[in-house]
Design a protein around this nucleic acid. Structure first.
Lengths: 211, 211
DNA sequence: CGCTTTCGCTACGGCCCGTAGCGTAACTGT
DNA sequence: ACAGTTACGCTACGGGCCGTAGCGAAAGCG
């Protein structure tokens, strides 16, 4: 979703409309190509062929490889959800395992790191990644925290600015640790590791409150 | 250092030796090119020109862009050290800030993520990254933990296998969180954030010990 | 039915890749 | 001193992908 710049602002009222099937076919072809060839092996010409679409059509909708792949991969992360397991520990563990499951898919692995690498020199791409992928999942943290506060497991934050800082911190710790474990250490995120990590984070959150 | 496969095993005893200056010139040129062009813009022909070396010389020593960049960037992380600041909290904070300082350099940013992305489909590259960069810094964790145990801040681990698991976990959490903060959230790792993170991790480590 | 926009297709210059071939330079053992 | 061996700089090449231009046809709208 949220493919090009044209669908956001006023779409042209006249002329032939863009094919919605083509959009989905292109994104699916991109994911398939990522699985087969990886980020560096992926070429826009190949994606166009797989999608049964002309290469020029592809360039009309996306500025380049980076933007295309961000959109193609963003949908994968919408699978994340947070069923109420009754305790903060269980909630953390389940989201860690879900996130790791997504990262185990080859298209997610190779694409995520690559677009982040490209984004280091491209502010617009950085914003696109954040709005399409990262910020969309941040509600999981606020949701889990709210539940924990309702259960009395966590203290209630008074200052909204402090709460936002805490949310960002928790998100960076969880996402960062799982990504690092999966892609850098390349060791499995099984229930053992998820349990260890959950205990560590839980102790950190429920321990002595910050100054 | 540790450039090619030839320097590890028995170097040829006969013939013209490889130029050591060329090695360093190439790696320096690679870092410079990463700053100017980023990962995707870097070409081996350009690196060779910058280094004042023929392109063929480059291909004799490195299999490709991935391996070259890993070696070029590995040296950056050797700056990390752990001066004894007297408390575990201070030790964590200082290493977080040091790591963030390295990640603030554009050549480190773009190269690290890119080679990790490439490594998702290349086991040999994954091992090269681990042995050249990651595992080299793991001693910081064991060192900091040993000091904290000597101070009585942390309990002593009896089982060496449990201790290793803990080391890996701490490493993933620290490195992962800092990387995520810098490159994905793209927010500054200042003393405020480092302090928040340190409190969180410290509480997690000193809290109720794992089952 | 005109107007507008998208679509598929072809073709193109340009850049970079990775290798081959050559003559030269550097170092080693006899 | 001399042959043997390896690294070096240089040039050249086929091949692949890029990103765009130009065309005729198709699909909507008033």
């Amino acid at each position: 979703m949220v493919a090009d710049m044209q669908s956001r602002s006023s779409a042209p009222r006249t002329g032939r409309p863009r094919s919605a099937e083509a959009d989905e076919a292109i994104l699916a072809a991109t994911r398939a190509a990522l699985v087969d060839l990886g980020w560096s092996g992926l070429t826009l010409g190949d994606v166009a062929t797989r999608a049964g679409v002309a290469k020029t059509t592809l360039y009309r909708r996306w500025a380049g490889k980076n933007e295309l792949v961000v959109d193609a991969v963003a949908a994968l992360f919408d699978e994340l959800e947070l069923p109420d397991r009754g305790s903060l520990a269980a909630d953390i563990e389940i989201v860690v395992l879900q996130f790791a499951a997504i990262l185990s898919r080859p298209e997610a692995k190779t694409a995520l790191m690559a677009v982040v690498a490209e984004s280091t020199g491209d502010a617009a791409l950085r914003d696109r990644i954040r709005s399409s992928i990262v910020d969309r999942q941040k509600h999981l943290v606020t949701q889990g925290r709210a539940r924990a506060q309702a259960r009395g497991e966590l203290p209630v934050e008074n200052d909204p600015e402090t709460a936002a800082r805490g949310t960002d911190l928790i998100f960076d710790v969880i996402a960062g640790a799982v990504v690092h474990r999966c892609l850098v250490s390349s060791k499995p995120v099984d229930t053992d590791w998820a349990g260890d990590f959950t205990r560590l984070l839980l102790n950190g959150l429920t321990g002595v409150s910050p100054a």
